[in-house]
Design a protein around this nucleic acid. Structure first.
Lengths: 216, 216
DNA sequence: CGGCTTAATGACTTTTGGGTCAGTAGGGAT
DNA sequence: ATCCCTACTGACCCAAAAGTCATTAAGCCG
């Protein structure tokens, strides 16, 4: 080889940073995996995004799959710890609580970064049952528990009508998932109007959960 | 080559069938794409499933992508024409109509083949905007229209309470989509009980849509 | 039955991209 | 200043799979 330019022209930046690398690589990986899923994701491109050479990735991660798992794990835990915060304050009517919970969920799940994660897990989840189950624990399980608490409290307060929904409260937040899915598939073709949809969701939800004579 | 068996042991079948090929190839393709999605799908395996050589595929389809599009198109139209049937008979209470519609939807979408198609479009839909939009027209658009009709009729009959749901009736069927999604992600980890979920769905739905004093 | 058209074949070529490793150079220690 | 450890590089390697094409033979026609 006559290769003349093994050394790139130079940027004044430091080139050896063992400690900072993993984070940078993961960040680049997340971005790439979110855009392309696992199969179409390209390691050279990840390296490029991270501003390093492809080989460097392999100093920190054994394989594409290992990097993928690390990236997902990172995402899952970060999204989760975020939502740790806003669950403490349990005050107000059941209506208010559910309203708040849903808004939160739409923000996170439909508008936020959690959507990309969701898409990947939906698409590629089979290859990593443990990530799936921790995701399940942190989202569905946790959410279901919270909903049950709210509903039980609502019954005590005389605001909520008992019924089969108590056993499977996921139906209450299901429309948010539908919205996210719709957006994923049809964002280019036929977007849904959020405000309108949200109103409809609330309307259906409340008039199914609240006692007939309750608030409003 | 010492290969003795270029000619498979014999089935009395003819080997030259220009007319039958496309259908066979598409069928094999559908099966393969449903199992593996676009990227992991393998043309040699498709050929094998169709009982032909790989090269033969290229006599009928220009590329893997072209075959994919043809297969999906085929699926979309076939799934749709299936459901053409059971919409005509509009009799009974609004409750009955919705109940019937939902059952139908769960059957098709959650238990049936439509789920695989749904997954693929969710995953790989970006590459084919026209398929997406015809899918949208045939499912969402059509379903929305039907729901609006049922609701309008329900209002006329005094069974349905007017509200924002009329504008965005998708919220009514959203839980079915949630169920399908849940199944896709967590089928191994934590399956949902269908009967129970369905009851909860109906309960939420009806007590939001029906007038307080209506049926039941 | 021999000639001819063309469906079909499958070995071969090409492309793609994950993974490797001999070489380069940053920068602390002496 | 220069030595040495090691983070880093990127050309290379190789497997898998998409795509090609010279060759084979099915089956019609005269």
């Amino acid at each position: 080889m006559t290769d003349p330019d093994t050394t790139p022209p130079a940027s004044g930046k430091p080139r050896r940073r063992k400690d900072a690398r993993p984070g940078e690589i993961i960040a680049a990986g997340i971005s790439e995996f979110e855009e392309n899923g696992f199969h179409k994701a390209n390691l050279s491109r990840i390296a490029q995004k991270a501003g390093i050479a492809k080989g460097t990735i392999y100093l920190y991660y054994e394989s594409k799959e290992a990097l993928f798992l690390a990236a997902i794990e990172e995402q899952v835990t970060s999204v989760m710890s975020e939502s740790e915060a806003d669950l403490g304050a349990v005050n107000g009517t059941t209506r208010d609580l559910l309203n708040k919970l849903l808004k939160n969920m739409y923000d996170r799940f439909v508008h936020g970064e959690a959507q990309a994660l969701f898409r990947i897990l939906l698409t590629e989840g089979d290859r990593m049952p443990d990530v799936i189950s921790s995701y399940h624990a942190m989202t569905v399980q946790r959410g279901t528990k919270l909903l049950k608490m709210i509903l039980a409290r609502g019954i005590d307060r005389g605001e909520v009508r008992p019924g089969p929904v108590l056993e499977t409260p996921q139906v209450l937040i299901a429309p948010a998932v539908y919205f996210a899915v719709h957006k994923m598939m049809f964002k280019n073709a036929q977007p849904l109007d959020f405000e309108q949809y949200f109103e409809a969701h609330l309307d259906m939800l409340f008039n199914g959960v609240l006692k007939k004579q309750a608030a409003d």
